[in-house]
Nucleic acid binder design. Structure first.
Lengths: 390, 390
DNA sequence: GCGATTATGCTCGTGAGGCGATCATAATAG
DNA sequence: CTATTATGATCGCCTCACGAGCATAATCGC
């Protein structure tokens, strides 16, 4: 039953016959399971459009109009977004606000307010909240963010509305989940996502499942030792890879002071390089090599089938792809070079973290416990109007 | 049923009552499942020794005398071992041979011969073979071994006897499995094992499951970029961590030529350091710091709950623990320092890889498919004598 | 010793969930 | 219009686990 529901979530445009084949279910079982899912307001079935093939036409399976939804929050540099996701992964943007410079408490209060409004609008259909934060997340807390400067902020508890689960994760982790499930790494058994914004984030995904370590802080690849052991990193360690591949690295190589907004600084240098500025070109090339070499090491250590890149990493792949790839190849162990995991641009450069947050939130819905609680809420089977979004 | 069998495997000295409690089974289910397992010659039950407590005494559950076994092979520097493991993890050594310098084909032929003898002795009770190799394993092949010099050797196919599955893995991976399931990292949700012999190997384990990447070559942490980008590594890359923490590093720091047997060379330097030789002490200290710093980076990236160390890494922890730990702490991101994952000596410094190979081999037995095939072999229920080891 | 207490094993009815066979149905092919 | 084809619907069957009630084997207290 869960398998069927998860399959519908991952393949929203499927038919009953296809579904039974993909999951190896008999037609009898499929009929029974789908009847149960229909009774629970989880899916709807309608006659499929004629395919022109012989035989009795199958039925399409779609999410139910009043099925469960989750809220997804993406906090990024100077703005945050809230969206609602339906079964199948469809996103419905609800709100976006800029918050330049406000303290964490105020921003979280605004987000919490927006979540409560969503709860009012969707009622018990809202089953979970997923939150993406631009920094290191450990045990439900944002322990440190180089991007927005927050430090040790209790996010999960702060955004808990009603009794629904709150899932919080690093933005690169979330984006990696989105890539692995519906993006550029779909179907890969093991995928590596590498995101460069301020520093390097990333995640390893096994069959779409993020391996985030024991406290959820896994994937901080930027804080592997890489460069000058005397160069201090804001994280407290020294010589972190972080410092060699982002806007700070570009500025340092160009002899400029440390930028306040490393991501925009990186974009500016990349633009200048695109216009042919030799100093910028040299800096971009050097950083591209640092990126490629580091990714090579990660591939050696983690053995992914594919590597997806986003943010500055994707831009470097576009503008200095040869340098990235050359350093990548020469950083690989020899036996890997004849068939290296490809470096691919992320499919969701803009809203990967939001999508990933929605995916992880939906994971709690598409679980034994999530299904039980939905059953309990739906069982009274009375006409609950459940106000749709106007 | 599988859950019960796995529980027996992991807790060989359990009782029926304990088992039912741990797995949340009703007494009825436990009775039924154990009856089935008994009928399949998988477990035996006997009256438990009196505990002195009130109530009807429970029964002990043990592996069946003629239950399934797996063969475990551990190939290491200049010698290999073969053992047989029973349900519960008990090892029964069968053979050990030295093979200094012989070509891979000859050594594999000897091992294959020993496996066939085991097959003859145990008959259909032998269900799987696990093989630990001292080098990089990818897709069933040993692609490269700095320790024994083999290169691109098809091991899995070469050691296939009869139709039983063959599982092959890197020695550090295998040892990590053993630590996570029955050793120093038992119970950890996420564990990191780091082994230094020739170079660095390791593995991340989630609930005892090794994350070995898409081809099985994951865990080659030694080939992360770490040191001098101009120093070539035999692997083909440059500046690998490998080169900074083993016997080669110690020799280089001491101005000695590259040792032929880096592991023994490391032991020699450690011995001299233990005797107070100042040059050796300085070299050991430097290498200890390289080790600690690298582990710090790995912990940042992978977020384990515990780190187990074996080989030279364990020796360094013994002899230069302060240096290892200091470098480890200063390599950690600041938020981790107040409660860093502990660095622990491996519980199985001698036979971790052998134990791990047995564990992974047993995983194939304790699976749906493995159980089905055992059922098919046992069902005829005739008195199959199945010669026990004399 | 002997009943009371306690923890466990054993048996059996129940229910969930999936499989496969069979029949019914809705499309196309000729 | 009939044959063919693929699917949906229904039903009996099987497996597996649960949980209630009874049986059993130990200790405790007298």
């Amino acid at each position: 039953m869960l398998d069927v529901l998860r399959h519908v979530h991952l393949h929203p445009q499927t038919t009953r016959a296809e579904l039974a084949r993909d999951l190896g279910l008999s037609r009898g079982s499929a009929a029974e399971i789908l009847a149960r899912l229909r009774a629970l307001d989880l899916v709807e079935e309608t006659a499929a459009e004629p395919t022109g093939a012989r035989g009795r036409p199958t039925r399409t399976v779609r999410r139910h109009e009043r099925g469960p939804v989750v809220a997804a929050v993406d906090v990024s540099y100077e703005s945050w977004r809230l969206a609602v996701a339906h079964l199948g992964g469809g996103l419905e943007p609800l709100r976006r606000e800029r918050y330049g410079g406000q303290p964490a408490e105020d921003v979280l209060a605004r987000i919490s307010q927006a979540l409560r409004e969503a709860r009012t609008a969707f009622g018990p259909r809202l089953r979970a909240v997923g939150v993406s934060m631009p920094g290191t997340v450990s045990g439900g807390r944002l322990v440190e963010s180089a991007t927005i400067g927050w430090r040790d902020v209790e996010v999960a508890e702060r955004l808990r509305i009603a009794p629904v689960p709150v899932v919080i994760g690093n933005d690169a982790t979330m984006a990696g989940v989105a890539e692995a499930r519906r993006g550029a790494a779909t179907g890969a058994d093991v995928a590596l996502h590498v995101a460069v914004e301020v520093g390097v984030g990333g995640v390893v995904l096994e069959h779409g499942r993020a391996t985030t370590g024991s406290t959820g802080a896994g994937g901080e690849f930027g804080h592997l030792p890489f460069g000058d052991p005397d160069r201090p990193c804001p994280c407290g360690a020294h010589g972190c890879w972080d410092l060699e591949v982002d806007g700070r690295a570009l500025a340092r190589i160009l002899g400029a002071p440390p930028p306040a907004a490393p991501r925009s600084a990186a974009d500016a240098v990349l633009r200048r390089a695109g216009e042919g500025d030799p100093a910028a070109l040299a800096a971009v090339d050097r950083v591209a090599r640092n990126l490629g070499r580091g990714i090579g090491g990660l591939v050696n250590a983690l053995d992914p089938r594919i590597v997806t890149l986003s943010g500055v990493a994707a831009a470097l792949l576009d503008q200095a792809g040869d340098s990235v790839r050359a350093a990548y190849l020469s950083g690989l162990m020899r036996f890997r070079r004849h068939d290296p995991p490809p470096l691919i641009r992320a499919a969701f450069p803009r809203d990967g973290s939001l999508r990933g947050a929605a995916e992880l939130a939906f994971d709690t819905v598409l679980s034994e416990a999530g299904l039980d609680s939905w059953r309990a809420d739906v069982r009274p089977a009375d006409a609950r109007p459940a106000p749709e979004t106007a």
